[in-house]
Simulated assay, not measured.
Amino acid sequence: MTSAPEPEPGSAADVVRSWDARADHYLELFRDELEGKPHDLALLAGFARRIGPGGRVLDVGCGPCGHVAAALDAHGLEVTGLDLSPRCVELARRERPGLRFELGDQRAPDLAALGGRFDGIVSNYSLHDQPKAMLHGTFAAWAAALRPGGRLLVVTKEGAADGVASDPLGSGIAVYWAEFRAEELAAAAEAAGFTVERLADRAPYEQEIASQRLYLEASLPEKSGLDASRRAP
């Protein structure tokens, strides 16, 4: 019997393969990681304030911990976590039973199943599993999933990596690993119609992988009053 072919590196099937295999390992490492990251907690709090209480937010590539979704939920947002890995979704639901986690692809979110467009999207290290060539398409998918005026927060690691590597998290498996430069993130955001409001970096904390962190905050234009009147029933 011949074995099934390996999925194309960086494809949706490859993301499922790699994250189903390392979800439990990741959960043990990062279940409470935000407790040691005051900068990131403050960033999420500011994002929540700008969205406003009750705003609908999609946590793309949420992983098995559900910790980002929980932090946003604590600020009064209606949060849905989205992940391609069935094991990640299973573990996130177990860890955060009061929150919503769904199976799906950040590059093609099923808005009908998710309840329509969102007020905000958070991508907390969700870009590292896919080739850089997909970056513009992913930002375009995020823009299509947001309402006019919707907000985006992206967190990545800075660098030039773009290919198969040994898992930096130490699971012992081969994974697709991409890193980004600030100008790459900004160009993809602007091409998708976002206005980049803030692009910053920080040095890694002592407990983190030794890579500079990048933070992009952006928003879509509000629909004009004229456009809104033309679309009114």
Rank of each mutant, 00 (worst) to 15 (best):
M1D: 09
T2G: 05
E6M: 15
P7M: 09
S11K: 11
A12M: 06
A12Y: 04
A12W: 11
D14A: 11
D20F: 08
R22D: 05
E28V: 02
F30P: 00
F30K: 11
D32N: 05
K37I: 06
L44W: 03
A45V: 01
A48N: 06
G55T: 01
R56S: 00
V57R: 07
V57H: 08
L58R: 03
C62Q: 05
C62R: 07
C65L: 08
G66E: 02
H67Y: 15
V68I: 13
A69Y: 03
G76A: 05
L77M: 00
E78H: 12
L84N: 11
S85N: 00
R87K: 10
R100I: 01
E102S: 05
L103T: 06
D105N: 14
A112M: 03
G115K: 03
G116E: 03
D119M: 01
I121T: 00
V122G: 03
S123M: 01
N124G: 01
Y125A: 11
D129K: 03
T138L: 15
T138F: 01
T138Q: 14
A141F: 04
W142Y: 10
W142F: 15
A145R: 02
L146P: 00
R151E: 06
R151F: 10
L153P: 06
V154P: 00
V154W: 11
G163T: 13
D167P: 10
D167M: 13
G170T: 08
G172V: 02
A174P: 02
F180D: 08
A189L: 12
T195S: 15
V196K: 12
V196I: 13
L199I: 09
D201V: 11
D201M: 09
A203E: 15
A203K: 14
P204W: 07
P204R: 01
Y205T: 03
Y205K: 01
Q207I: 08
I209R: 13
A210R: 13
S211T: 10
R213Y: 06
L214N: 09
L214S: 06
L220R: 05
P221S: 11
E222T: 04
S224M: 10
G225R: 15
A228T: 04
S229P: 00
A232V: 02
